[in-house]
């Protein structure tokens, strides 16, 4: 208990130190506020953004597309992972292309999507879907390959059909890896949306970053980055909670 307390206390102390340094150091070192704004500058700017720039709308838009892209991308990734996991043949046939697509920098597709779909929400959604898709796919596929053969044999000996084996053995066996893939994907989803918004469009926190950057308003950029981090963090925490619920059957040390 004391140990746990100590961790929290130290962690909070670090946060306070960083905030104090942020407030004091730029002025002390004579760094102009358009390079590094202080904490109080940023808070003032945050209030201004809230009243003048319709900040709430931007936050909600970014959050919405993060979640939407995450859900669609991970659904597609999981479905594709399970399908390929069921067929050795297709897995072998498609794996070089999957690897190639996985290596290709997904954010670089953003301008292309804008050319195809125009300045609307479609490009950022697609970038997010694409970036989320792979970690989920790869994790599921990897887990499908390593399902315990003895469990599958047991199920077969109990006369389960192929579909029965899939739902009762393979899916539950792969859930820990699926959850790990989703956690990675959740952190990437924010990147996808941000890049989409940076490159085109006039809504979202990513847009505020490029807008603020254009005006040499560093405080606006700072605020947008922090808010993006908060969105990603919240998504991650929600997933962690879900994971804890879903994987309750694992001994605590294992996850």
């Amino acid at each position: 208990m004391i140990r746990k307390h100590g961790i929290k206390l130290t962690s909070a102390t670090i946060l306070i130190l960083v905030l104090v340094a942020w407030q004091v150091l730029p002025t002390a070192l004579d760094v102009p506020r358009f390079i590094i704004p202080t904490l109080s500058d940023s808070v003032v700017e945050l209030k201004r953004m809230w009243t003048n720039e319709g900040l709430l709308g931007h936050i909600l838009s970014t959050a919405l597309y993060t979640v939407l892209g995450f859900v669609i991308g991970s659904l597609l990734g999981a479905v594709m992972g399970y399908l390929l996991g069921m067929s050795k043949f297709w897995e072998k046939v498609l794996s070089p292309y999957i690897l190639a697509l996985q290596i290709a920098p997904k954010v670089a597709f953003a301008p292309l999507f804008i050319m195809w779909f125009g300045y609307n929400s479609m490009p950022k959604l697609l970038v997010t879907v694409l970036i989320v898709f792979f970690p989920v796919l790869v994790n599921v596929l990897q887990a499908m390959r390593t399902v315990d053969r003895d469990l599958v044999n047991l199920a077969r000996a109990y006369s389960l059909t192929r579909l029965g084996v899939f739902w009762k053995i393979e899916v539950p066996s792969t859930v820990p890896n699926l959850m790990a893939g989703l956690r990675i994907a959740s952190t990437l989803a924010v990147i996808g949306v941000t890049v989409g918004e940076l490159v085109g469009g006039n809504t979202g926190l990513g847009y505020l970053i490029s807008y603020g950057g254009g005006q040499a308003n560093a405080a606006m950029v700072f605020n947008a980055i922090i808010l993006l981090t908060v969105i990603g963090f919240l998504l991650y925490v929600v997933l962690e909670r879900i994971e804890e619920r879903v994987l309750h059957y694992l001994p605590k040390s294992q996850h």
Binding site: D148, D150, L151, L154, A157, K168, I169, P172, V175, Y249, L250
Partner: peptide, 11 residues
């Protein structure tokens, strides 16, 4: 049948 591993489904 039963093996050395109990093969209980952990979930």
């Amino acid at each position: 049948f039963m093996l050395q591993k109990d093969l209980l489904l952990p979930w």
